[in-house]
Design a protein around this nucleic acid. Structure first.
Length: 855
RNA sequence: GGAUGUUUAGCUCAGCUGGGAGAGCAUCGCCUUUACACGGCGGAGGUCAGAGGUUCGAGCCCCCUAACAUCCACCA
């Protein structure tokens, strides 16, 4: 008899397990193995700090899938990686330096990058610790970093291929400029937020007859220093007469032309707008159409430049206020309106984006998107989304995607592999470094997502397409990620993958939601409701965290998790622990499992095996479609209700009077079911399961060595078992409704076959707490369970008629319901045959039971 | 402006080919029973957002409406 501690203690259970599994190679992929493969690349966390609860949700979902697949006999590659996260990391390190009073420009690029690498090492090793803490079964030998040598090669090669094929170009465009981080951003790095702003109306006087003026509205008066035209709609009769006149810009007295362009909306504002081609994408297009001058009036840090005259050097928003004041004094301010309008903010620095003319590198997206559509059309099942609706969201985005601005004015990242010949000015794209004397490399780096988009194959040693890892593990089996990153990452992996490898990069895309707090509030620094997964581990244990993360919520939807969730899981784990403790206490210490034949099983054994079969098939069905929560719910119910609530309790009674032969059968069922529960629960809660497993007599080295459970074969007649379960419930309810203690002695009469009586006798005696059971004739005062009739009365009082009446009423309702359905001709005509049969069966069953109450 | 989701018990949510409304927590009552008081047992609690339609049959399918949420686009 083995002894477990009385309570599940997560600290001692977790001790040393990760090391054990890892040292025994359970986390390693085996590229030579003939087993089917299952491969996942971790969504690489940024090397910016500690992992948060969202990472935990994501990685633990993956880990649960990986552990499940290993048990199911797959060769699993769970590839760990980290992302250099250009903007985020550089911003973080800069902020750290600023705190110490150090400016990055004083340091210089090289020294600054040294510091970033040190930061990366520190941060990376902390992430490793966290991965280990939450039990991620990643294959450490396969770990990659987006800035490592091999990935950098892949990045350069990708750039060159796109460049050579004309899919990358450099051009002057209006881009999203982040004045705080001083870099360009791509469109999706800009968040549009509705904010309260003002609409300023100014007078623009005509040069030739200054007493007349046009009223023009703007939300950004400071850009007036960059105005190079005033525009109206060519069909607007109100303004046609002024066409070609010169207008005086009230901020600097410059004369600018009055021109017509189709872009202007006659009905908006005054129907006349100012045109600032260097600070607005639409104005830029107008400027190109009319050959206007492109005048920037701001510096890269968001201050005004010399064009703004006396405001030179002033912050753009300060300039706005002062300029409005000046124009008001000048008499050119007509009015100010309050409006709510949408303004672009930097996703990283949260400051307001300045649209600005700038020379940047772009990827042409159309041809890449077309390639993706081609592959998806060729084989619509090649890449499946779970839930499927995300497929639509994904393709719609791909259809409307703009060219991708990939250059960033940062130091930390992959340098753009384009060189300018110092003498000739000729541009060359080169994978290898060119000598510095002759060539100057482009100073910008690539958008972080340019490299992470290569993850599914570059991390498998692409571009070497013949290497065994790429051949075996690409395309990846599944990509697991939250929906907030579909456009940033998923879409880009898909088009880079399609373009470079001719394949969609994964077979399945599993999208999960975000974690919110227990009140459904988004977690954020400002509301201070963030949760550190490590703290949860310390408080509730890793298994509780894992279980909560992988199982709570529905795929694709956000879920709320609070302490209650973890407490609930701990309760369940304690249940598993104690049930196991009990089983181990009754099975002999040297027990050797020998499967009992179906013919040896008693009706309660058949019942539990039947329930087990239902559970296993539902579990597998749901796991295989990424319904982890649904799958585990079946397992939870089985463990809690069927195994602990029913079977163990019945076993206690059974074993009291069991002979040696029967004992052996019970041991075998207990051992078998418990072991199967541990294996099935293992992907969710590996620590506690392995710990209990190690305490099973004659176990193997690890659960990983076990075969996955299979359905118990043969006919399992469970009806008597399920009838007994109903009887027990009714006996208990009877006691409650009669205000009797659970230990009350109940008198009962039964009407049944001898065989059923022999089987049920000891259980009934136990729950009735009465050694005498009266055999009765068929009697309307009995409650029937199938053909088994049971009548209850306390020794002190009369038979409770109400219980019987309630039962009769229920049966009558059932019969009436069946009669109604079966009396419906259309039902008989149109419903499927099985449904009709099922209904008929029920009808007969209830009818028969009801008859018994009428003698 | 466009799209997608959500609306089921007091709370948080399941409900997976259309065929008898479920869980956890909270609540009420009983029980220290030899695996577990981190427990057991039992009870109460729901016009499945509203309206219409399809169907023999709708929480589930279709249409409309409302509220909330998210994403995309955006007129100066």
């Amino acid at each position: 008899m083995k002894q477990l501690e009385k309570y599940y203690n997560h600290d001692s259970v977790e001790q040393g397990k990760m090391e054990f599994w890892s040292n025994n190679g359970y986390f390693s992929c085996d590229v030579k193995s003939k087993k089917p493969s299952f491969s996942v690349v971790i969504p690489p966390p940024n090397v910016t700090g500690v992992l948060h609860i969202g990472h935990a949700k994501n990685t633990l979902t993956i880990d649960t899938l990986c552990r499940y697949k290993r048990l199911r006999g797959y060769d699993v590659l769970f590839l760990p990686a980290m992302d250099h996260a250009g903007i985020a990391t550089q911003a973080k390190v800069e902020a750290n330096l600023r705190e110490q009073g150090i400016d990055k420009y004083q340091l210089g690029k090289e020294k600054f990058l040294d510091i970033v690498w040190q930061w990366k090492e520190k941060c990376g090793s902390y992430i490793h610790k966290q991965w280990d803490k939450i039990g991620l079964s990643v294959d450490k030998n396969m770990e990659r970093f987006t800035l490592d040598e091999k990935t950098s090669e892949a990045v350069n090669l990708t750039f060159k291929k796109l460049y050579d094929e004309g899919l990358i170009y450099q051009g002057e465009r209006i881009i999203n400029w982040d004045p705080k981080l001083m870099t360009a951003l791509s469109n999706i790095e800009v968040e549009h937020k509705d904010i309260e702003g003002k609409f300023y109306y100014f007078k623009y006087h005509f040069a030739s007859h200054p007493e007349d003026y046009l009223t023009i509205a703007t939300t950004r008066p400071e850009t007036m220093f960059g105005d190079t035209a005033i525009v109206y709609n060519p069909h607007d009769e109100r303004y046609k007469k002024y066409d070609g006149e010169m207008i005086i810009n009230p901020v600097n007295g410059e004369k600018i032309p009055f021109i017509a362009d189709r872009y202007v909306d006659k009905s908006f504002g005054t129907g006349v707008m100012k045109c600032t081609p260097a600070h607005d994408p639409h104005d830029f297009e107008i400027g190109k159409r009319h050959n206007l001058e492109f005048i920037k009036c701001m510096n890269l840090d968001g201050t005004m430049n010399e064009r703004a005259l006396k405001y030179n050097g002033l912050d753009r928003f300060e300039c706005r206020d002062k300029l409005v004041e000046e124009l008001k004094e000048q008499g050119d301010l007509v009015k100010i309106e309050d409006i709510v309008h949408s303004v672009g903010h930097s996703e990283r620095s949260h400051c307001i984006i300045e649209p600005m003319l700038s020379k940047q590198w772009f990827v042409k997206m159309k041809p890449l998107a077309l390639k993706v559509f081609k592959l998806m059309k060729e084989d619509p099942k090649a890449m499946k989304f779970f839930p499927s609706r995300y497929s639509k969201i994904f393709t719609r985005w791909l259809k409307t995607v703009d060219d991708w601005c990939i250059s960033r004015q940062l130091w930390w990242g992959h340098k753009i592999p384009v060189y300018t010949n110092k003498k000739t000015g000729e541009k060359i794209c080169s994978i290898t470094l060119l000598n510095e004397e002759e060539f100057e490399q482009d100073q910008d780096v690539l958008d972080t997502w340019f490299s992470s988009a290569l993850a599914p194959f570059a991390f498998l040693n692409w571009p070497d397409k013949n290497n065994e890892y790429y051949k075996k593990y690409y395309p990846n089996s599944v990509l697991v990620t939250a929906y907030d990153i579909i456009f940033f990452w998923v879409a880009r992996m898909v088009f880079q993958g399609s373009y470079l490898t001719d394949k969609l990069p994964f077979h399945n895309v599993f999208i999960h939601g975000l974690i919110r707090d227990e009140f459904g509030k988004k977690m954020s620094k400002s509301s201070n409701n963030g949760v550190d997964p490590i703290k949860i581990c310390e408080q509730y244990g890793v298994d509780a965290l894992r279980y909560a993360m992988a199982n709570t919520g529905t795929p694709g939807l956000d879920c709320n998790i609070g302490n209650k969730t973890y407490e609930n899981v701990v309760t369940f784990l304690n249940k598993v622990w104690n049930a196991s403790r009990y089983v181990l206490s009754i099975i002999p210490e040297d027990y050797k499992f020998a499967e009992a034949k179906n013919s040896e099983l008693s009706f309660i054994d058949k019942y539990i095996y039947h329930q087990f079969n239902l559970t296993l098939s539902s579990y597998i069905k749901n796991m295989d479609k990424f319904e982890l929560g649904q799958a585990t719910k079946y397992l939870y119910d089985f463990v809690y209700n069927d195994f602990c609530g029913t079977y163990l309790e019945l076993c206690k009674i059974d074993l009291k009077s069991a002979d040696e032969k029967r004992r052996q059968v019970v041991y075998s069922v207990l051992y078998d079911i418990l072991k199967n529960i541990l294996i099935m629960l293992f992907p969710n809660c590996p620590f506690i399961c392995e710990e209990i497993y190690w305490n099973l007599p004659n176990n193997k080295k690890s659960i990983y060595e076990e075969d996955y459970p299979s359905l118990r074969k043969g006919k399992l007649d469970y009806s008597l078992g399920s009838n007994l379960v109903s009887m027990i419930r009714d006996i208990r309810a009877f006691k409650t409704s009669n205000n009797l203690p659970i230990s009350a002695k109940i008198q009962a009469k039964v009407y049944c076959s001898d065989k059923d009586f022999n089987e049920l006798e000891k259980f009934l005696k136990f729950y009735l707490n009465n050694e005498e059971i009266i055999i009765s004739s068929s009697d309307k005062n009995l409650i029937y369970y199938g053909s088994f009739g049971l009548g209850l009365e306390t020794l002190a009082s009369e038979q409770d008629e109400e219980v019987i009446l309630r039962r009769i009423k229920k049966l009558e309702e059932e019969v009436a319901r069946s009669e109604k359905i079966l009396g419906n001709e259309n039902f008989l005509k149109k419903a499927p045959k099985e449904k009709i049969e099922l209904e008929k069966e029920k009808y007969l069953k209830y009818k028969e039971e009801l008859e018994k109450y009428k003698h």
